[in-house]
């Protein structure tokens, strides 16, 4: 059974991905190529990196479907395909958490490295916030206010919170 505390963090991550994709889908192709110093890459490449990395983590956790487009993908997928991938990742990670019976289960990554499943879940949560922050930085550097992706906004979106705190 999934810990509700953990589920909140995972669902916030899934919600924030889709919110960011919805925001970026209103941007032009040239705006999606914006970047800034010190970040991962362009907005579009960063979005794809977030979602394909999640798919890669899920592949390690489940042995299921490989991330699309290779690793790293050589071509950028359209945002609607990335949104499909985000929804698929969201569904799959919840199933993984619901069915995990051995938190100490060791997993062999494609590189041959061995890591517990719990560390992959930790990286899954860290990775999304880290790279969404990069997109927020790119938007800010171009004087565009990005979407509010904090957990307060998530709490309001799922109806458990009225707070709009810092």
């Amino acid at each position: 059974m999934t810990d509700l505390m953990l589920l909140r963090a995972i669902r916030h991550n899934s919600w924030a991905n889709l919110e960011m994709l919805a925001f970026c889908s209103k941007m032009s192709a040239s705006q999606l190529e914006w970047t800034a110093s010190g970040v991962y890459g362009t907005i579009h490449a960063t979005l794809q990196h977030i979602l394909t990395a999640e798919a890669g983590y899920l592949h390690s956790l489940t042995g299921g479907e490989l991330p699309p487009g290779g690793r790293p993908p050589e071509t950028l997928m359209p945002l609607d395909r990335l949104a499909d991938l985000a929804r698929s990742n969201a569904e799959r990670i919840e199933k993984v958490l619901a069915n995990e019976t051995d938190p100490d289960r060791k997993i062999t990554r494609p590189s041959g490295a061995i890591v517990p499943g719990t560390i992959i879940v930790t990286q899954y949560i860290h990775h999304g916030s880290d790279h969404r922050a990069h997109i927020g930085t790119i938007l800010g550097a171009h004087s565009v206010e990005g979407p509010n992706l904090d957990a307060w906004a998530f709490g309001r979106a799922i109806g458990v919170s009225t707070a709009a705190l810092r």
């Binding site: 509700l4 505390m5 589920l7 909140r8 963090a9 916030h12 924030a16 949560i125 916030s129 992706l149 904090d150 957990a151 307060w152 998530f154 709490g155 458990v160 919170s161 009225t162 707070a163 709009a164 705190l165």
Partner: peptide, 15 residues
């Protein structure tokens, strides 16, 4: 305002 412990912890990690 109203919120829950789970939301605050999610915010702590995200922030």
């Amino acid at each position: 305002e109203q919120t829950t412990v789970g939301v605050v912890l999610a915010q702590l990690v995200h922030h």
